[in-house]
C-alpha cells in the first residue's frame, strides 16, 4: 500500500517536472509544475515531514504558482512549439538519466548513510512534530531566520519599486 502511494507521488513529481519542459503553453507548464509540487509534498509526507509538506503546498501551490499564472495572464499565453524529434530525443535522454539515477540510488544512498551522524537512516520521529520546527528555528537558527526575514522585506520593497509605474510616466500619460 505504502509502495503504491510512493510510486503515485513519484510519478506526479517527475511527470510534472517533465511537463514543465514539454508543454508548449505557459499555463500548461504552470499546471504541470503544480502536479510536481503536489508530488513533492506527498514525498515529504511519506518521509514523515508533515509541517514542511503542507507549508510547501501552501507556499508553492497557494502563492508562487498563482503568481506565475497571474503574470502569465498579464503577459498573455504564448505557444513555444518544440519540434517533435527534439521532444522525443529529450524524453529518451531523460529516461536514460532516470534509469541511471534509479540504478545507482542504492549505492548513492549507502555512501550517504556512511556519512550520517547516526550512521544509519531510520526513524524520523523528530520531523513529525510541528513544535520541533519552531524550537529548531528560534533556538539554533535564529540568525538565519532573521536574515531570511530581512531578505523577504528587501524583496518586498524591491518588488514594489520595480513593478510600480514611475510617477513621471503616469503624469505624462494622464496629460495625453
Amino acid at each position: 500500500m505504502e509502495a503504491a502511494v510512493y510510486y503515485v507521488f513519484l510519478a506526479m513529481t517527475l511527470g510534472g517536472a517533465l511537463g514543465v519542459l514539454l508543454t508548449p503553453g505557459y499555463v500548461g507548464a504552470a499546471m504541470s509544475m503544480l502536479a510536481s509540487m503536489l508530488g513533492v509534498a506527498g514525498l515529504m509526507l511519506m518521509m514523515g515531514a508533515y509541517f514542511p509538506a503542507f507549508v510547501m503546498i501552501s507556499v508553492y501551490a497557494g502563492a508562487v504558482l498563482v503568481l506565475f499564472v497571474f503574470v502569465v495572464m498579464l503577459v498573455g499565453d504564448a505557444h513555444e512549439p518544440v519540434r517533435l524529434w527534439r521532444k522525443f530525443a529529450f524524453l529518451v535522454l531523460w529516461a536514460a538519466a532516470g534509469a541511471v539515477v534509479g540504478l545507482y540510488a542504492p549505492e548513492m544512498s549507502s555512501w550517504a548513510e556512511s556519512k550520517l551522524a547516526s550512521g544509519v537512516s531510520g526513524s524520523s520521529g523528530a520531523l513529525e512534530v510541528a513544535k520541533n520546527y519552531g524550537y529548531a528555528m528560534f533556538k539554533n537558527n535564529m540568525l538565519a531566520f532573521q536574515i531570511s526575514g530581512l531578505l523577504l522585506l528587501a524583496a518586498m520593497v524591491g518588488v514594489i519599486a520595480v513593478a510600480k509605474e514611475p510617477a513621471v510616466r503616469k503624469r505624462r500619460r494622464e496629460m495625453v
Partner: peptide
C-alpha cells in the same frame, strides 16, 4: 498533527479550478 495547515493549504488549491 498539522490539520489547520492542511486545511489552509489544500483549501487554497480550489482556486486552480477557477483558473
Amino acid at each position: 498533527d498539522v490539520g489547520l495547515l492542511f486545511a489552509l493549504a489544500v483549501g487554497a488549491l480550489g482556486v486552480y479550478g477557477t483558473i
